[in-house]
Design a protein around this nucleic acid. Structure first.
Lengths: 228, 228
DNA sequence: TGGCAAAGTAAACGGCGTTAACTCTAATAA
DNA sequence: TTATTAGAGTTAACGCCGTTTACTTTGCCA
């Protein structure tokens, strides 16, 4: 390749920028990431960074997808620690929480406020959304195995759920699970993410300092309900 | 009172500041609240606002507590729409979600990233934390009634939960509920808040646009598990 | 070897939170 | 009633910030 060396250089610089941004994120949270500070750390001008990213927002979004993937990698690795699918699922959930506790600011970046009506035309590439989906799917395989080992039929669905879960992106789930399983999976994912988010964001600190037993209780309740 | 008139003026100005801040919050989210813009809207100088708030952060924190209380008021009102305690609890949960959907940016302010090790010495007054606790307790009364109507004994707790739930602030809960009830209440609250937060922050949009049925399913599952 | 695209710089614009020194005004104390 | 004084507000500045424009340097390729 002719341009290969050039492009490798470019990619290396981009990585250096992301690393500098990550250092600021770890130190002071998402809002304290600053282009000028990154440039200062790297020994160049703020304007130079615009050769690599269109804006601060674009850089932050890239960083967000990057961190999402780091989390996904760790969750996938934790699955190996379980002998049965149920254990794999439990270990994946615990790894998720541990990562969030270890990297609270990165978790805040991942989980915090898009909020807006950013309808995001699904045509354009959406690296953050893709990373979010990859992460969610890291739980799907063991969940599916546990689900199919259920002994009793699931509770009937509330009217409207089946119709709501018919979008193009749930196809991956529908291939692996019946509609009741898809609903359970999404609700469970909401429950897991919600529990961790509440904990990281400090919304449980008024009640207790030692939040781990409560998480374990929550997790076991969830898994018991899943296995019936 | 001699100083009464002065102080009423002062309080009125503070309210006007909060209202201006709230308008910016509604329009562009927590990060777009700006002292200079508030001053511009009110027809005075940014420096003048420092007569009323020590910093932008202090203003935002006050606004946050204020919005928390607005949410609490609405949840308390919704309880009246239920005949039985179970219905009251359901209506309270639905009102919580409706408020969040109607005021997503205000919800982001309430629920978003404190995250940091802001250990918050519990001596100093903490209006936001107090408001958060008042909100949580808005669900306690109907929950307690439903809990006491249970027919079967609760699942045994994971080891360590009882010890973790012994802080000073859980006293209010302990007076109304046995330890298993306290755990269930906190986990349920986590589950409810988590579900709403995930929905508002857009973390379910990859799966479906119509998230209401999923929430209803989640809620009914929760209430069924509570009533056994 | 000349040209050309990429990388980087300098300087400016407007916006931000915050501070310090000042004026004015209205309630209070003599 | 008048002098004092505390509070409200202004002006001007400081040092950050993201972003843009016009410029210079650098190193690859034909």
């Amino acid at each position: 390749m002719a341009t290969n060396r050039r492009e490798r250089q470019r990619e290396a610089t981009k990585t250096e920028i992301r690393d500098a941004a990550r250092a600021q994120l770890t130190a002071g949270g998402p809002n304290s990431i600053s282009l000028r500070a990154i440039a200062r750390d790297m020994g160049l001008t703020a304007a130079a960074l615009y050769r690599y990213y269109d804006s601060l927002d674009a850089l932050v979004e890239d960083l967000c997808a990057d961190r999402y993937d780091a989390l996904t990698t760790e969750v996938l690795a934790a699955r190996e620690n379980g002998a049965t699918p149920l254990d794999q699922l439990r270990e994946a959930c615990r790894a998720y929480r541990r990562w969030a506790l270890r990297n609270p600011h990165e978790y805040a970046l991942i989980c915090g406020e898009p909020v807006i009506g950013t309808v995001h035309d699904h045509v354009e590439s959406n690296p953050k959304g893709d990373a979010a989906m990859r992460f969610t799917l890291a739980f799907l395989e063991p969940f599916t195995a546990v689900w199919h080992a259920r002994t009793t039929p699931p509770q009937p669905l509330v009217p409207g759920v089946a119709e709501a879960l018919s979008g193009p992106n749930v196809e991956t789930l529908r291939q692996a699970l019946p509609i009741e399983g898809v609903a359970f999976f999404l609700i469970g994912w909401t429950r897991l993410s919600g529990a961790i988010t509440m904990e990281i964001f400090g919304h449980l600190r008024w009640a207790t300092d030692d939040t781990e037993p409560l998480f374990e209780q929550n997790l076991e309740d969830m898994l018991r309900q899943l296995t019936l």
